[in-house]
């Protein structure tokens, strides 16, 4: 498969097929990132489409010969942040917490058509996703980019629009928070069953 920068250049030259190839190359990874950030498939799909629409509209700001991936990730990051802010502003009070229906978390990272494919322990994955969702957005992003998506700290910092130092701190704090959360998920259960000899 062609490299992202070649595809981007051909796309800027007016080749629609190159955009489709670029989408096929980048979208799965980007969707994985957005899924881990948004934890909702429909929202992640929407953010992905918005991201590529923005890439399309901003293609004149592409610099030939440059790797478009960090730039596309930055756009996805910004799109996610904007969407989160929009949702925060649009909070609707529906009553007390006890009255709220329990909403099942639908994300497992895979698409409908690949749901049956082999993957790790679903319990572990679900616990990790829950813990990840509990992190503040900045720490979550740092963990997702550096620990899960395999980006270097410098790349992650560029994507998130922060310094390398700040990204290191966020990733470390996020990881430590995850360790704390995941280190003792069974403790309350053990206490309640009174299993101690």
């Amino acid at each position: 498969m062609a490299e992202a920068r070649d595809l981007m250049q051909r796309y800027c030259d007016g080749e629609a097929g190159a955009f489709r190839e670029l989408y096929a190359l980048v979208a799965p990874r980007l969707l994985g990132y957005l899924l881990k950030m948004a934890r909702e498939r429909a929202l992640a799909d929407d953010l992905l489409q918005q991201t590529f629409l923005k890439v399309h509209r901003a293609r004149t700001s592409y610099v030939r010969g440059a790797d478009p991936l960090p730039w596309i990730y930055s756009i996805a990051h910004r799109t996610f942040i904007d969407e989160t802010r929009k949702h925060k502003r649009a909070v609707v009070r529906v009553g007390d917490a006890e009255e709220l229906p329990e909403v099942p978390a639908g994300l497992t990272g895979e698409s409908e058509d690949r749901r049956d494919e082999g993957r790790g322990d679903p319990e572990l994955v679900s616990a990790a996703l829950d813990a990840l969702a509990g992190l503040p957005a900045q720490q979550r992003e740092a963990v997702v980019l550096t620990k899960l998506d395999g980006k270097s700290v410098a790349e992650a910092a560029e994507i998130a629009g922060t310094t390398v130092g700040a990204m290191k701190v966020r990733a470390h704090r996020g990881y430590e928070a995850l360790r704390k959360t995941l280190g003792r998920p069974d403790e309350p259960a053990k206490k309640s069953t009174g299993g101690a000899p």
Binding site: R20, P28, G120, A127
Partner: peptide, 22 residues
């Protein structure tokens, strides 16, 4: 369980299939 066990599980999740272009 700890993050050392779960994060590799998350890392190894299958790559999701993106939706078709809007």
């Amino acid at each position: 369980m700890s993050a050392d066990h779960e994060l590799p599980e998350l890392r190894d999740l299958p790559v999701p299939t993106p939706p078709p272009l809007s």
